[in-house]
């Protein structure tokens, strides 16, 4: 093989090795040094540049909200178990199953409302600009997921209707 080509390929391989090595080392070092997996609220402090006083207030709100959230989750899980029992092996949707579905939807709506109230309270504990950004981000993350799912389902349904 041509000597110059060998030199060029060798240099490219060496360059790629240097870049990849430094990239992965730096990435791992950053993850190891900056990650705080034990603290749920680490992201808030990092993202919204909050001071100790603001963090203390938010931690208080967070600790107050968690038991309520857990209670709602337990209620929803129990109601889902009831629905599964009612559905059993039946192939038809009975009136009782419909009632359970409505109850689950009501509980989920209640849970969501409670969550949004918590987000609003947390946003008020932040400086106004950061609070607005937090609220928008949390709405996008929590409500946006459902909207995306509904959107994709409606697109899928529309596509199927179109082919019929």
């Amino acid at each position: 093989m041509n000597r110059s080509l060998v030199i060029l390929l060798g240099a490219l391989a060496l360059g790629a090795g240097i870049f990849a090595g430094s990239y992965f080392t730096a990435q791992r070092a950053t993850v190891m040094c900056c990650a705080k997996p034990a603290d749920d609220l680490g992201w808030l402090q990092m993202e919204f540049h909050l001071g100790d006083a603001e963090m203390a207030r938010i931690r208080e709100l967070h600790d107050g909200y968690l038991p309520k959230c857990a209670e709602m989750c337990a209620k929803i899980a129990a109601k889902k178990d009831e629905l599964a029992a009612v559905l059993g092996t039946s192939t038809n949707l009975t009136a009782e199953a419909q009632t359970k579905l409505n109850e689950i939807a009501a509980l989920q709506a209640q849970c969501q409302a409670q969550m949004l109230e918590h987000f609003a309270a947390v946003s008020q504990a932040m400086p106004p600009e950061q609070g607005q950004r937090y609220l928008a981000e949390m709405k996008r993350l929590t409500l946006g997921t459902n909207e995306l799912m509904e959107q994709s389902m409606s697109d899928h349904a529309g596509h199927e209707h179109g082919t019929n």
Binding site: F19, S22, Y23, A29, A35, M46, H62, C73, L141
Partner: peptide
């Protein structure tokens, strides 16, 4: 490499921290 790796690492840390927070306040999501 160091610059790009650090940026990517920061993004990963940010994303993981965000998911931790989200899992604690909105587990159903």
């Amino acid at each position: 490499g160091v610059f790009a790796g650090t940026l990517e690492g920061r993004q990963m840390v940010r994303h993981d921290a965000q998911m931790n927070y989200l899992a604690s306040v909105a587990p159903h999501v």
